[in-house]
Every structure is written in structure tokens, then in C-alpha cells.
Design a protein around this nucleic acid. Structure first.
Length: 152
DNA sequence: GCCAACGTTGGC
DNA sequence: GCCAACGTTGGC
């Protein structure tokens, strides 16, 4: 089983929103970055565990856990002209983007903030804190995962 | 809201 | 295939 960190803007979709979804599960779509897409398509597996990260907000950081609850599938929002995720270059014949389902697992008692993660020498090599890491889907190592869980 | 850092596009 | 211009992300 692999570990991931996925970013979401809480104004758009927060961990509380995920918890309140039907079956606590929602489509994780709208990824429009090739590197992130490649992870989703090629590496993310059903049953993987995900750090749910809040970005572009007052206190950015990891707020809880989710589980990948589907295999990757074609991101239909790319075909929807009314969607903000519409992409004219993705076609049904040649789909460009993928999505997975995420299921709520737990919410941390506190936010493990980006500032805290950045300041921690044990996490100096983590992708999230490395320069210009804008990836919205990124791998987390077993060591990083266990260590961050222990911070809660 | 600013802007640094990155990604993407498109002319050549 | 290079690279300048533009767009986006996301912390601050």
C-alpha cells in the first residue's frame, strides 16, 4: 500500500465536505497537471491512504486521512462545457485526465501545519516542503507517513 | 493582493 | 526542439 498527499482548497472542498458526502465518498476530479495526473493514473491504487491537505487558506496543512476507494477512471468533468474543469483538448476518444474516488477516513484533532512540517528537520526531504512543490498529488514515504501521524 | 516558482503554449 | 510569453499555484 502506498501513501499520498492530496491538496484541496477548503473553500472549494474541505475534509468536512468529504465527510458529509454520501458514503463519505466523492470523486476526486479536476486534476489538470500532467505530473499529478501520471501519479493518479499509474501509481495510485485502490486502498491507498491519503493525507488530506488544505491549501490556499489561512492555515495550510494536513487535516486528516482519506482512502482511495476506486481505481483510476476517466475524468468526465473535462467533457462538461459548464464545468470549470472543462478541457476542450480532452475527448471521449482520447481522454486526457483521470480521477479517483476518495473516502473520508479520519480528521486529525489538530491541523499539522505547513509551517510545522517545514520547520521539522526530520521532514527536510519531504516533497511538500521542497522548493516550488506545487503538485496537487504527491507521494509520501512510509517513514514520512508514520512520522507525521506521530505528530498528531 | 503580491509575487516567486513552476508549467504550458505556440511561434519560429 | 528552443524559448519567450503567458498562465497558474499557493504561501505569505
Amino acid at each position: 500500500m502506498a501513501y499520498w498527499l492530496m491538496k484541496s482548497e477548503p473553500d472549494e472542498f474541505s475534509i468536512d465536505d468529504l465527510q458529509q458526502c454520501k458514503n463519505k465518498t466523492e470523486t476526486w476530479d479536476g486534476i489538470r497537471n500532467y505530473q499529478a495526473r501520471n501519479f493518479l493514473r499509474d501509481k495510485v491504487k485502490l486502498g491507498d491512504t491519503v493525507f488530506f491537505y488544505h491549501s490556499s487558506c489561512k492555515v495550510p496543512g494536513i487535516v486528516g486521512l482519506a482512502t482511495v476507494s476506486s481505481e483510476p477512471y476517466i475524468d468526465q468533468s473535462a467533457f462538461d462545457q459548464t464545468s470549470t474543469y472543462f478541457d476542450a483538448k480532452s475527448s471521449i476518444d482520447n481522454p486526457r485526465w483521470v480521477a479517483v474516488d476518495l473516502t473520508y477516513k479520519s480528521k486529525f484533532k489538530r491541523i499539522i501545519t505547513l509551517a510545522e512540517l517545514k520547520a521539522d528537520p526530520n521532514l527536510a526531504k519531504m516533497l511538500l516542503v521542497s522548493k516550488g512543490a506545487r503538485l496537487s498529488v504527491q507521494p509520501v514515504t512510509q517513514q514520512e507517513f508514520d512520522y507525521i501521524l506521530s505528530l498528531e
